[in-house]
């Protein structure tokens, strides 16, 4: 489903060129759960931004769901971000002064879902992540774990193929982290692929595959042997047709 070939990303600051990614090859299939690890500055976030269609590579080819992302226009990228990818950030990135419900409705606003259906789906997604009683709270009235769950609900509402999360537990305590990982694991069970960046080995153990970055290159890529299962509330979510298509 995802295929990166010889991806290079060069940052230019003044005269200095920095090769943040130096020829990365990576394939991720439907239904995978990948954790990206590696030391700070090794290019993890750069890779995630390219994978998430937020940024374009300087060179190399990127295919997502048979679309050639490396040659897509800005508008096409926006559409792909909107419909195929759910992005979860370390710093939550919810709109301030805006209720949880409206934050979750936002991606549907841009994909042209009608107001009634939008509200219905947003409420479902919020109750799936256990926030049915917090829908009218603003981000500053929610705890970090709750904010991240709103962000996950937001990433879900357009039925993405894949959820990408850059250090989603980086700002959370261990209990909230486990809850978040439990949600990811359950979403993965439902057929949604997950790629997340973390520097915590404990968090990485919840995934099925760990990719190590070092100096802009993939250093190691291995299957997780004794995978941890996160204990958390059951996700009460029915995903539509895309799940069946995902198989497995």
């Amino acid at each position: 489903m995802i295929k990166l070939t010889n991806i290079v990303k060069i940052y230019k600051t003044g005269d200095i060129e920095l090769r943040a990614l130096d020829g990365v090859d990576l394939s991720v299939d439907k239904g995978e759960f990948v954790a990206i690890m590696g030391p700070s500055g090794s290019g993890k976030s750069t890779a995630m931004n390219i994978l998430g269609c937020l940024d374009k590579a300087s060179a190399g080819e990127y295919f997502l769901d048979d679309l050639k992302i490396s040659e897509a226009s800005d508008n096409q990228l926006a559409e792909i971000r909107n419909r195929k990818i759910g992005f979860v950030f370390q710093s939550f990135n919810l709109l301030p002064r805006t209720s949880a419900l409206e934050n979750v409705e936002l991606p549907m606003l841009y994909s042209g879902v009608g107001a009634r259906e939008r509200k219905e789906k947003a409420l479902k997604a919020l109750s799936a992540v256990g926030l049915a009683d917090r829908v009218h709270h603003k981000p500053n009235e929610l705890s970090g774990g709750q904010q991240q769950r709103v962000a996950i609900a937001r990433s879900l509402v357009n039925n993405p193929l894949i959820i990408m999360a850059d250090e989603p537990t980086g700002n959370l305590d261990s209990k909230s982290s486990t809850e978040i990982m439990s949600i990811f694991q359950q979403l993965n069970e439902m057929g949604i692929s997950v790629i997340l960046v973390t520097h915590e080995p404990d968090i990485a153990k919840f995934s099925k595959r760990i990719v190590h970055f070092k100096d802009g290159l993939i250093d190691s890529d291995e299957i997780v042997r004794n995978r941890s299962i996160a204990q958390g509330a059951r996700l009460n979510l029915e995903l539509t047709n895309r799940v069946e298509a995902a198989g497995r």
């Binding site: 800005d74 508008n75 971000r81 990135n93």
Partner: peptide
């Protein structure tokens, strides 16, 4: 700026 970034990350086009 950050709000604009969030909206774009979620799929808002330039035109929007």
């Amino acid at each position: 700026t950050r709000e604009i970034g969030i909206r774009k990350a979620i799929g808002a086009k330039r035109r929007t």
